[in-house]
């Protein structure tokens, strides 16, 4: 046996003949053909009208619309994170009433379509004519007509942040639940109170599970804000619509809009990556650099996969 082993040639003398993946080649060829057709259409079809796209790409009213879309997204997301965290904490509280209220909130605001909630808040005056604060022995402090403060922008912020908070509440709850109970016990045994434990121990660890879906939600929300055109908030899509309503350059302007949405989504994805890295810094496995991630995402050719 020993003799036989010493007589076999060393392994580097053997050539490996790779398995031919004919199916893979055919698939790649078809994909390239389709890609070619699309590129040809994009380049030659006059309906795309690239010079017009270029003309409107940095148009002042498009820029104003983009600004409005960004302001909406940031405002709504910040409010949604705050409301969502409060609802999540209520959902995890030992009180049955708080728990039931939080469940009902999530059921309603996550369940009802965003568009319907948007139109409802914009038309709130049909339900409630005015708001007034009356204190006993003091009298009415102030009264405002609903129509005076429920501008399209305010309606959009209220409707979409309540809607988004329904999603955020579930994300935060899942994050908090993902932190091992031993962490809370250890903190408790050191004399930390509930609020301190939540702020210093549970939430920071939950962030690693909260950040990725929150990034997705932000990207989703950025696009959902285009619904506000229906109540005439001057966002990116509305700006484009008002131009093509006059000039009938519909397709080029939609391309302009799509370009800006994709541009912002790309920026957001990059930010998300760095935030994830920050909260995962205690985790050795997440040490990959941004370049590595890019390489992994965009690597060409065949990827070795374990069977």
């Amino acid at each position: 046996m020993d003799r036989a082993e010493t007589q076999t040639p060393p392994p580097e003398a053997l050539t490996v003949v790779p398995l031919r993946h004919y199916g893979l080649w055919v698939g790649t060829a078809i994909t390239l053909a389709i890609l070619g057709l699309i590129l040809k259409a994009l380049a030659t079809n006059p309906a795309f009208d690239w010079p017009t796209v270029g003309k409107y790409l940095f148009h002042p009213s498009i820029m104003r619309g983009l600004g409005q879309t960004l302001v909406l997204t940031v405002t709504i997301m910040v409010l949604a994170i705050i409301i969502g965290t409060i609802v999540a904490i209520m959902r995890l509280s030992p009180s049955r009433i708080l728990n039931a209220f939080a469940s009902a909130y999530i059921w309603f605001f996550r369940g009802a379509p965003a568009l319907i909630q948007l139109i409802f808040w914009f038309n709130l005056a049909l339900v409630v004519r005015e708001f007034s604060l009356t204190l006993p022995f003091v009298g009415t402090l102030f009264t405002v007509k609903t129509n005076d403060f429920m501008t399209p922008f305010v309606a959009a912020v209220i409707a979409l942040s309540l809607h988004e908070a329904g999603y955020m509440a579930e994300i935060v709850r899942a994050g908090i639940n993902s932190v091992a109970s031993g962490q809370t016990e250890a903190a408790g045994s050191l004399g930390m109170n509930h609020r301190l434990i939540l702020r210093r121990i549970t939430l920071p660890q939950a962030m690693r599970f909260i950040v990725p879906p929150t990034g997705n939600e932000t990207i989703n929300l950025l696009k959902t804000t285009s619904l506000v055109t229906i109540i005439a908030v001057n966002d990116l899509l509305y700006a484009a619509q008002s131009i093509y309503a006059r000039t009938f350059e519909t397709i080029p302007l939609l391309i302009v809009v799509a370009f800006w949405y994709l541009f912002v989504v790309t920026i957001l994805s990059i930010c998300q990556h760095y935030i994830e890295q920050y909260y995962g810094r205690s985790d050795l496995q997440q040490g990959a650099s941004f370049g590595d991630t890019l390489k992994r995402a965009f690597r060409f050719g065949r990827v070795a996969q374990p069977a």
Partner: peptide, 26 residues
Amino acid sequence: NNKLLCQRRADIGMVFQSFNLFSHMT
């Protein structure tokens, strides 16, 4: 109340089977 309980617990150290170090801290 919670405050007093925490004060008293602070005087009683505990070491756990699964260590329970705060994993996001050095």
